[in-house]
Design a protein around this nucleic acid. Structure first.
Lengths: 145, 145
DNA sequence: TCCATATGAAACTATCGAAGTTACGAATAT
DNA sequence: ATATTCGTAACTTCGATAGTTTCATATGGA
């Protein structure tokens, strides 16, 4: 399975936007993410819908952060992407009436549910501001500070 | 992404095998899993390699459990499948040298690592015997016991 | 007004791994 | 001998993200 990189990419994009003064075009972001402007627009659409960013067409337009990074959690971004599936392993749905299958699926579902809760709690607790400060630390470390 | 159902299917298959006296052919298992005998053989190959089951060709052959269900953990099965990727969300690998990307990937990796540890601990703690007894409970409940 | 710059969106292709299928060889028991 | 069963290679199908092409629309400046 090919893993979904949209969450990672949007985090990356928004932090870069912040460092560009809170604004950027799809073209600029596409270069930062090594992808296509259309992919950027498509992926950002949910963030706009949820009020995390705003967009304006035409000359001088582009994308703008609608909130400070400290007011955006990973959970906000994840929700704006319509909560993509977290897990690559799943239940077999072959014979829903088979009690063995139900027992197996129940056990897996409970385990994955616990993992989901853990991830959700982390996503809710971490802001883009936190990640941006992580960057600052890495930058300082990279300069040997 | 289409979720990988091999773990679920193998648990399902081995419990059914146990209830058939510990033996079954690929054809029988394929019917239980609503799939093809070749898919069963392919998926069971890792389990044979790891000594969880044995296979014999020819007339009267088929698959046999090599251990009691209580001596097989979900972790054993997961390992026999060569530890398939657990998560459907991933890091972007576009610009590994970008410090923003490193900060983002680091945060995601840490969260997923915690979730992975949680899942691994559950997998190590649960045996197929446990799931089989879950089945017994469901069966009793289904009969109104 | 004219035009370059942007986003919006539809429609299509590319990609990648699990899953499914076909086909044939090899081994085993009756 | 023959039917049964696994082993394996090779190919197709499927589904979702990702990538691409194309055109419409809106904005601001010359």
């Amino acid at each position: 399975m090919r893993t979904d990189s949209r969450l990672s990419r949007m985090l990356h994009a928004l932090i870069h936007m912040d460092r560009l003064g809170g604004k950027a075009t799809s073209e600029q972001l596409a270069q930062m993410l090594a992808t296509n402007p259309v992919v950027v627009r498509r992926t950002m659409a949910g963030l706009r819908r949820d009020g995390l960013v705003a967009s304006e067409p035409g000359h001088g337009g582009g994308w703008a952060l609608a909130r400070p990074l400290d007011a955006i959690t990973l959970k906000d971004i994840y929700a704006a992407l319509d909560e993509p599936e977290l897990f690559a392993i799943g239940q077999s749905q072959d014979h829903p009436e088979c009690l063995v299958e139900q027992a197996v699926n129940g056990a897996l579902a409970e385990t994955l549910s616990q993992a989901r809760d853990l991830i959700a709690a982390r996503f809710a607790a971490v802001t883009l501001g936190d990640l941006s400060r992580d960057f600052d630390d890495r930058f300082a470390a990279g300069r040997g500070a």
